[in-house]
Design a protein around this nucleic acid. Structure first.
Length: 132
DNA sequence: GCATTGACGAAGG
DNA sequence: CCCTTCGCCAATG
């Protein structure tokens, strides 16, 4: 995507529950991601499920892709796929930026894989106890 | 407006 | 187990 192209989340759009034509979806994703504590990670699918669109994990990935210009900042490095793999690392400034950021937060990454994934995994549906 | 493309994930072979 | 297919849906050409 061109750097100048700017996505505008939360435009005045009709809210339709059940699909993602709801532009607020991006904001919701960002809000959840911002709640992920340092040293923990979550997954695209878990976040999608928490927001009620569990079949649309790919949209969470897309939200991360355009999260760069979001304010306040979104710790996108804390979102990995369901196996704990850093599948989004290529979308960061440098190939190692994501891994470095995670390591700085205390998450151990080896070969693009989060170690002790089940221990550091942060499931919004559990941690937030569904208080949407 | 149709076709393709994904930072995904589940299911089927 | 590994590989492919499919559903999902916004963005892009």
């Amino acid at each position: 995507m061109p750097p100048s192209k700017k996505v505008k989340p939360n435009q005045e759009k009709p809210l339709e529950t059940g699909n993602l034509k709801n532009y607020r979806f991006f904001e919701d994703v960002y809000d959840v991601v911002r709640l992920i504590p340092k040293g923990r990670v979550s997954s695209y699918g878990a976040i999608a499920a928490y927001l009620g669109t569990k079949l649309s994990a790919r949209m969470v990935g897309w939200a991360m892709n355009v999260a760069h210009h979001a304010h306040p900042p979104v710790p996108a490095q804390r979102v990995v796929n369901r196996n704990g793999m850093l599948t989004g690392k290529h979308h960061f400034a440098t190939p190692t930026a994501m891994e470095e950021a995670l390591k700085k937060e205390g998450v151990i990454v080896l070969n693009d894989l989060v170690q002790s994934f089940s221990n550091v995994f942060w499931d919004p549906a559990v941690e937030l106890e569904m208080r949407l």
